[in-house]
């Protein structure tokens, strides 16, 4: 059975613009990217304002270090700047997938490097959340559970929930079929449920 619940919000969507009217937003983004590529400072600043938080969050969730996430963000935007200035961006209408492919590849490289580092050398403090204390504890438990998922599941969740990418964009940048990603997403949620509510899971299995 397929059930549908409240849809998650995406930051880049303007009020009143749904998936039925994506073209104006894409056209505006394409124009913005083109202007940034021609060296217009205000366009570049707008791109940075719009995407740096999402790139940083992607890095933070996977690398679990503020410094590493900050370095990664700067590195990704430096690459973006070079590519735009060199006219290397030719994937019209696919800017987000292009940008986050760069970011995700960089995250993978850094994660491998961190895995080879001695324990405790890389991982730092996870920043405090803006939620109240009780909620923060719940979120910490969820964060620890996410860290126990396998690499591909963690990657998918971070691209979806930290970077706020559409599943179609994730499929494009990872090169995996959409159906595979949806199944993996669902399986990840079920695993998290089992980790966070083991009793409930047992009841479910008994039923």
């Amino acid at each position: 059975m397929i059930t549908i619940a409240t849809a998650p919000r995406r930051l880049e969507e303007e009020p009143g613009q749904g998936p039925e009217a994506p073209d104006p937003a894409k056209a505006a983004l394409a124009a913005l990217v083109a202007r940034a590529g021609h060296g217009e400072g205000d366009a570049w600043e707008t791109l940075v304002e719009r995407y740096s938080r999402r790139v940083f969050a992607l890095g933070l969730s996977r690398l679990r270090s503020r410094e590493a996430a900050e370095d990664l963000t700067q590195s990704v935007f430096a690459t973006l700047s070079e590519q735009l200035a060199a006219g290397a961006y030719r994937e019209e209408g696919r800017f987000e997938a292009w940008l986050f492919r760069i970011a995700n590849n960089r995250v993978r490289d850094e994660a491998k490097r961190a895995a080879r580092a001695p324990a405790g050398e890389v991982h730092g403090e996870i920043p405090a959340t803006t939620a109240d204390r009780a909620s923060a504890e719940d979120l910490d438990a969820l964060r620890r559970a996410v860290a126990r998922l396998n690499e591909r599941e963690q990657e998918l969740l971070s691209l979806r929930h930290q970077a706020e990418l559409a599943f179609a964009d994730i499929a494009e940048l990872t090169g995996e079929p959409l159906g595979t990603l949806l199944a993996r997403h669902h399986r990840s949620l079920a695993k998290l449920r089992a980790m966070l509510d083991p009793d409930e899971e047992e009841h479910g299995a008994d039923a």
């Binding site: 619940a5 998650p8 938080r53 999402r54 940083f56 969050a57 933070l60 969730s61 503020r66 920043p127 959340t129 803006t130 939620a131 909620s135 719940d138 979120l139 969820l142 964060r143 996410v146 969740l157 979806r160 929930h161 930290q162 706020e164 949620l189 998290l192 449920r193 966070l196």
Partner: peptide, 15 residues
Amino acid sequence: ILAGLERLGEADRDA
């Protein structure tokens, strides 16, 4: 769980 993941994402962006 989805709501929690959304809040985690928001917290990480706010960081």
